[in-house]
Write a protein that binds this DNA or RNA. Structure first.
Lengths: 176, 176
DNA sequence: GCGCAAGTTGAGTCTCCACTCATTTTCGTG
DNA sequence: CACGAAAATGAGTGGAGACTCAACTTGCGC
């Protein structure tokens, strides 16, 4: 692969993440090209369809999330991850929207799986520490994670509402 | 207003509710016209923009929801309403999506207000009965309601996941 | 019935956007 | 350098969908 191609590909990915995070997955591909300083054709050379581009940035984001989940641990790791993710949701429209659409348009089962097992690990540790009730299982934790991110994103919750809502969820996880 | 116009307007509203519930708010207006058995121009005569049509069905749906909330009561009224709403979410894409977008595209503050005060009433009764903790406030209840509906809708949760997720939320509301 | 305003019709316009491709530029190798 | 292959360019194509409007049809008051 030629050096300019490598450079452009990386730049397109970075810019696309920014654009879709800001404008949501319906942002025009042309905006990505403009901000990346390349022609529209170049974007489509690297990512034959818009979906491919979205899938690529989704993968990056989910990998990064899984990694940051992996760095946490202990009784409060799950809560910390939950809080951080929700706080960040508003600036990551693409991830949240696409995660919520649950693979209808984009298939990333293995990538979502990586995130899921990282969260599963945190859940296990929290339950071992007794901060989360034993009866809670992974699917509902993921469901709540996605739901609350979605809500925070679209609802434009302020810090206080976010805190209060998460308090209810955490109380539920603790003593369900 | 002429009698055929009255008939068409009502039919369009009914059909639009069905179409947008089924296909989401991005469904083409033409589909509404087709199913209603009228020409596209007729739809736009009654509702000058697609947004007006969406706003009209949103208003109907929210009024209906508020009314059904009003019929409930007692310590478990809030939980019952919550459960019913989430169960129905999957068949009401338009409401959930548009509620979640929180008035960005559609202004319905007074209508949402009606629903909100109905839920507020249920919350008050639940707290009086001691089934919901005193510290819980209306904004986070609404936030959770919208989030979980959204999640249930897009995530395609099955009955069990819905039950388990709501169990966590209810536990949180009870002892937050 | 008649007349006409109110209502309906649907082909057509306009805009937006994903995607294409003939042409031109650039990279890297001998 | 020179040259061929790889990459970039950007005007162009096609299709979708919101909305328009001139011609037609229909309900209804007289």
């Amino acid at each position: 692969m030629r050096s300019d191609a490598v450079r452009n590909r990386a730049r397109i990915l970075d810019v696309a993440e920014e654009v879709f995070s800001e404008l949501g997955p319906d942002a025009p591909t042309e905006e990505v090209a403009r901000r990346a300083g390349v022609a529209i054709g170049t974007v489509f050379r690297h990512f034959p369809t818009k979906n491919d581009l979205l899938a690529a940035i989704m993968k990056r984001l989910l990998d990064r999330l899984a990694e940051s989940a992996g760095r946490l641990g202990g009784g409060d790791g799950l809560f910390a991850f939950f809080t951080a993710l929700v706080a960040e949701a508003a600036s990551k429209r693409a991830v949240v929207d696409l995660l919520a659409r649950g693979g209808v348009e984009i298939r990333l089962p293995e990538t979502v799986g990586v995130l899921e097992s990282a969260v599963g690990e945190l859940l296990g540790q929290a339950q071992a520490a007794g901060t989360v009730a034993a009866g809670v299982r992974l699917p509902e934790v993921m469901a709540l994670l996605v739901s609350v991110c979605q809500g925070a994103l679209h609802g434009g919750w302020d810090t206080e509402l976010r805190t209060r809502t998460l308090a209810v969820v955490f109380a539920g996880l603790a003593r369900s």
